[in-house]
Design a protein around this nucleic acid. Structure first.
Lengths: 307, 307
DNA sequence: CAACCAGATAAGCGAAGGCTTAACAGCAGG
DNA sequence: CCTGCTGTTAAGCCTTCGCTTATCTGGTTG
């Protein structure tokens, strides 16, 4: 019984599939399957088996899950505790949907680091909304920014920002082609929800590596693109993009911050969550354009897990 | 960071020395030292260093200790939870001083198993009093029988039996030679305390592998032996042994049962603790001679740890 | 100073962990 | 019946764990 085996088990149980867990951990599927096999043999119980919809826990697995989950969480806590005690920078890991990550997480972390006074080592990542709950619950990340994450009673998912999702295009853009960022491939994202509500067929969608690229393509007449109004206000004012009316936009969206319950989350996660309520953070979410100095810039980790 | 490494760290911290931890785990000293080295490197902190009296924790180590301790405990709990869920026999591990273990733990466990109705897998072990606290606190055992174990607020050490420690000898025995069981080598044991109070020099002491052997040797005139009065009542009645008066005997002794606090100990440990208060258990402690059928007999594990 | 004790380090070894790719097995839907 | 999806097994590989014995080191203690 090793911590990695337990971690794999917990993630499979929470995500409901070996594949999803393997993806979240950024390893191959057999790696997870095998960790599971080792744990099964060690404990002499199938723990979790294929069911009609996803993997389902055996009675033994159900008993194990909360214990294993806590062990994994404590593992992360152990590291943080030791570093904190010797004054080393504490890690703060933030995940967000690609849309949010692109503009706001880096400035937010940077501002928080300067304001908090404490020495901290922030890093940001991009994750799918379906993984966020498990990532937070397993303490693989400290806080997640994205849509509301319900369904897990131990998580605290609170709104932190109100935004308006609109559709923009260039002067010659037609609504036949939709230019989107990677979040559109995440069924849980707001972008994806918007496309579904407009019944946009897949073959009318082109995915760009980021929103900036999608908007630029839209400005050049390649099609229309979803956007948060406040993030494209500048381009609209300059006439490069203009608002395209649709039956469902503007959509009122709330960005949520999700952490473990206030009593169980790491102190730093709580501090960051509170920071998100300050005028300074609000300002950054509204006008993130400022960017951060290259000396402090750290590229976001894509998907998955830090080590 | 592995669970065995954490276990080694916790045991070193609790016992105050690498040597003691190595002994408790029944491995060589470098094995423990090395596990510690690996953990130190992994976490980037000395964690625990040689101090004037025993190993002392660094700030980082002090932070780590409670977390690591809980992780180790949860590891044991995980196994028990899975077995319990599938109806496999639950393990009940009892340690005792060698004196108590020799006569009473086996009948007690056997009687408890029959009475509890539940399917359980009892095993008994012999441990030094200095190790008992750490063994219980780390859930390396469920319950310890021996002297009162104070000093650790998370442990519950309650008296369960009153006994009288006396000294016995054969007809020709002289008090110049003391015949003792291995518990006499344990400074925390009552036997050892008795010898200290009588200022018996080491070269007058001969250690036998068990009390029965020591008493037999005493009966044959080889010297005198400490004994619990109720355990030698039979031999005294038959005239094989007779009571030898000393300035400090009879000594009133209390056997204590030590577990984790009632809220944190495994349910089975609590049930066994309550069983110790029943007339049936009292009777077995008073007259353990009955023995148990060979089919259910399991030899005690000496010292150290079950795996 | 020598002796000794406890802990750390070195070197070596077997077993397990943990990862990969490739192939297999159960089961849906067209 | 075939295809596609998902989980498992097989085989190979490298690393790490975890243990040993032997040796070194540093602080006490006579």
């Amino acid at each position: 019984m090793t911590l990695t085996q337990l971690g794999a088990f917990v993630l499979v149980a929470r995500l409901g599939s070996v594949k999803a867990a393997a993806h979240a951990l950024d390893v191959s599927e057999p790696a997870v399957s095998q960790a599971l096999a080792a744990l099964r043999q060690d404990l002499g119980d199938p723990l979790i088996e294929r069911g009609p919809n996803g993997m389902t826990l055996t009675p033994g697995g159900a008993r194990l899950l909360p214990i294993a989950s806590q062990m994994v969480a404590l593992g992360a806590e152990a590291e943080a505790a030791v570093r904190a005690a010797q004054g080393r920078p504490e890690p703060l890991r933030v995940v967000a949907t690609s849309t949010i990550a692109e503009f706001v997480t880096a400035p937010l972390i940077d501002a928080f680091a300067r304001r908090a006074g404490r020495d901290l080592d922030g890093s940001s990542g991009v994750a799918g909304t379906s993984e966020m709950s498990a990532l937070v619950a397993n303490r693989l990340t400290d806080i997640a920014l994205g849509p509301h994450l319900g369904g897990d009673s131990e998580l605290l998912s609170e709104p932190v920002f109100r935004a308006r999702l609109i559709v923009v295009g260039g002067s010659r853009s037609s609504t036949s082609t939709w230019l989107v960022d990677p979040a559109a491939t995440d069924p849980g994202s707001e972008t994806s929800r918007l496309l579904r509500r407009l019944r946009v067929p897949d073959d009318r969608i082109r995915v760009y590596p980021n929103q900036t690229a999608a908007w630029e393509a839209a400005a050049e007449g390649g099609g229309v693109a979803p956007a948060f109004a406040h993030l494209v206000a500048h381009q609209i004012r300059r006439g490069e993009l203009s608002v395209v009316a649709t039956p469902v936009t503007p959509m009122e969206i709330r960005w949520h911050a999700t952490t473990l319950g206030a009593d169980r989350r790491p102190p730093l996660a709580g501090a960051f969550r509170r920071f998100l309520g300050t005028p300074e953070a609000m300002h950054l979410m509204r006008q993130p354009g400022a960017g951060i100095p290259p000396s402090r810039f750290r590229p976001p980790v894509y998907v998955t897990i830090w080590s």
